[in-house]
């Protein structure tokens, strides 16, 4: 698969625990093409969070290789990983994770600060993305002035601000009611329609239904991988 955004081969991760070495991930192979919309599912302890941390360049694997946009990142150091997270990835978390003291606009613009973009450009880009998620009029407000669903939309705008190849969403609807969840999933659908690759971690089957492809983890391995609507 030549245009794969993500390709992992034999990816493994073990943790040292009091009871000895615990393998959270045991040799995972997966390829995700540009423009895909993929849901990663599985019960807690199945290794899906570990897998997401590795995909998100927040952690380094114990074994195997990981190519992100053609670059093998398994061997990069912490600062190089930080730059990669900044330029190539956008994160959406379950808990929104906006910085409480900053205006929404500054929150959205924050990744650009670390990318060294000048102030005028930062403001303009943040403004455009806040408009895109329908919250332009709240640009100067603090995060605690708006609802959870709105906060998650701001978080999505922040994930998009550096024009990433890939968005990683970890249980993005976990803290939201079903109506708001639908709105967020519709937004993801639109973004995917614009050609952005989305990797979604969830344990809710009806949320996973929004993705085009579903991968299921159990005990550190992939046990199923199929397109939505097809039989598992």
């Amino acid at each position: 698969m030549a245009d794969a955004v993500i390709r992992v081969a034999g990816l493994g991760k073990s943790y040292q625990t009091a009871a000895g070495e615990f393998p959270a991930l045991r040799g995972v192979d997966l390829a995700i093409a540009a423009g895909e919309y993929i849901a990663i599912m599985g019960p807690s302890g199945s290794g899906k969070s570990t897998f997401m941390n590795l995909l998100g360049c927040l952690d380094t694997p114990s074994a195997g290789d990981y190519w992100l946009a053609g670059e093998n990142v398994a061997t990069l150091d912490k600062d190089a990983l930080a730059v990669l997270r900044n330029r190539t990835l956008g994160f959406v978390f379950q808990g929104f994770n906006l910085l409480p003291r900053m205006s929404l606009q500054d929150n959205v613009a924050l990744p650009l600060v670390y990318a060294g973009v000048d102030k005028a450009t930062r403001r303009a880009r943040a403004r455009v993305l806040l408009e895109r998620v329908g919250l332009g009029k709240y640009a100067e407000s603090l995060p605690n002035r708006i609802s959870g669903g709105q906060q998650q939309r701001v978080a999505i705008a922040r994930a998009l601000v550096n024009a990433p190849r890939l968005i990683l969403a970890d249980e993005p609807t976990g803290n939201l009611d079903s109506h708001t969840s639908e709105e967020i999933m519709r937004l993801f659908g639109e973004l995917n329609g614009d050609g952005i690759t989305i990797v979604l971690v969830t344990h809710e089957p009806d949320i996973a239904e929004h993705a085009k492809r579903q991968v299921r983890f159990l005990d550190g391995r992939i046990i199923s991988d199929h397109l939505t609507g097809a039989a598992p």
Binding site: G56, L58, K78, D79, A82, V83, R85, N86, R87, F91, N97, L99, L110, P111, Y114, A115, R158, N162
Partner: peptide, 16 residues
């Protein structure tokens, strides 16, 4: 701590 984690996730390097 959490704020630091968020900053790191969106691309802050150690020196930042």
């Amino acid at each position: 701590t959490r704020e630091i984690g968020i900053r790191m996730a969106i691309g802050a390097r150690q020196r930042d």
